[in-house]
């Protein structure tokens, strides 16, 4: 029996206001997978999510969910959850009503609705907030409400648009692990769009790199993060890029070793949690950080560089 992908996106193109926002976007998603779509601001990340959700219709291409084409299906019939960047909580309703919204729309019995709302509120630890209104909640609590609301209707796919971007780093750390557990506990796949590398490192099973409307790389997380294949990917991942002998190389700031053949002059040294160095070499300026001290005398080693394609 052929195991169908949870989601197949094939050749999606979209022009908005005469500008090509998405160009031939293709990728797929399996059961219980978290796929990170990584890209700079304006690269079209939100548009991909909007297309999959059905909020905008693509000019060309197909979207298939479990083998069924949903490209022309209405937004409210796709059973795809969406966590907006500003959460989209209903400010005129309290927490319980927010969570219950999707269940009411599905015309469930009131008793059943109450049961499900209570259950998910308890499992998210927000049961004591059920009668409060969104304006009375903290940032983290709002996130949990939003997650609860999305998951209570049992979607098979959840789209998340940089949901943690407005939170402080403590909350972000906590909630990342929370989200990590969701595919297993709720049997959903997640497409998570972000420009934050920490999200990619912790959350993702696979990563797709979006650059100027195109998916330029798509693959397993470790492979993408440690072995970028082209300049654009490397830039997005924060690598230093330099040319040597007519070839292009990339090296991650954490992989520059102190002590080596490459001559480097220290321009800036900033001490923080680690030592941050901006050095000048014959190939241009490089940034790296290290626990060790470097004063420009011993040179650096760029042996961990990766050769890039175009």
């Amino acid at each position: 029996m052929v195991r169908l992908d949870k989601l197949n996106v094939q050749g999606i193109c979209k022009k908005i206001g005469g500008v090509d926002i998405l160009k031939d976007v293709t990728f797929s998603l399996r059961d219980k997978e978290i796929k990170i779509i990584l890209g700079a601001s304006g690269s079209g990340k939100t548009s991909i999510l909007n297309t999959i959700a059905g909020i905008i219709k693509p000019d060309a291409g197909k979207i298939l969910k479990k083998g069924m084409e949903i490209t022309d299906l209405d937004v409210n019939r796709r059973n795809i959850g969406f966590l907006f960047q500003d959460l989209g909580l209903f400010y005129s309703m309290n927490v319980a009503e927010n969570i219950a919204y999707g269940l009411r729309v599905r015309n469930l019995d009131l008793k059943e609705i109450n049961r499900k709302v209570n259950d998910i509120a308890r499992s998210f630890g927000i049961a004591e907030h059920l009668s409060k209104f969104p304006s009375q909640l903290s940032g983290g609590e709002k996130q949990l409400v939003s997650l609860a609301r999305t998951l209570v209707t049992g979607p098979d796919l959840v789209l998340m648009d940089e949901p943690l971007s407005s939170l402080d780093s403590f909350l972000r750390n906590s909630l990342r692990w929370y989200i990590k557990d969701i595919p297993r506990k709720f049997d959903v796949s997640i497409i998570y769009v972000t420009h934050d590398l920490a999200d990619a490192e912790i959350l993702g099973d696979t990563i797709a790199i979006l650059h100027e409307g195109r998916i330029i790389e798509d693959g397993k997380k470790e492979e993408i993060l440690n072995h970028p294949k082209n300049t654009a990917t490397a830039r997005i991942l924060g690598y230093n890029i330099y040319e040597k002998d007519g070839k292009t190389y990339a090296i991650h700031p954490s992989k520059v070793l102190i002590g080596g053949p490459t001559v480097a002059k220290v321009i800036y040294l900033e001490r923080g949690i680690k030592n941050n160095y901006l050095v000048d070499t014959s190939f241009g300026k490089l940034y790296f950080f290290s626990d060790q001290e470097f004063n420009g005398q011993t040179g650096i080693s760029l042996e961990n560089s990766i050769e890039l394609g175009a």
Binding site: V75, N76, F84, Q85, D86, L87, G88, L89, F90, R106
Partner: peptide, 13 residues
């Protein structure tokens, strides 16, 4: 905000 309307639609309304 669009996200409120968008949320209600993706929740099936």
């Amino acid at each position: 905000p669009n996200s409120e309307t968008g949320s209600s639609r993706t929740l099936g309304d």
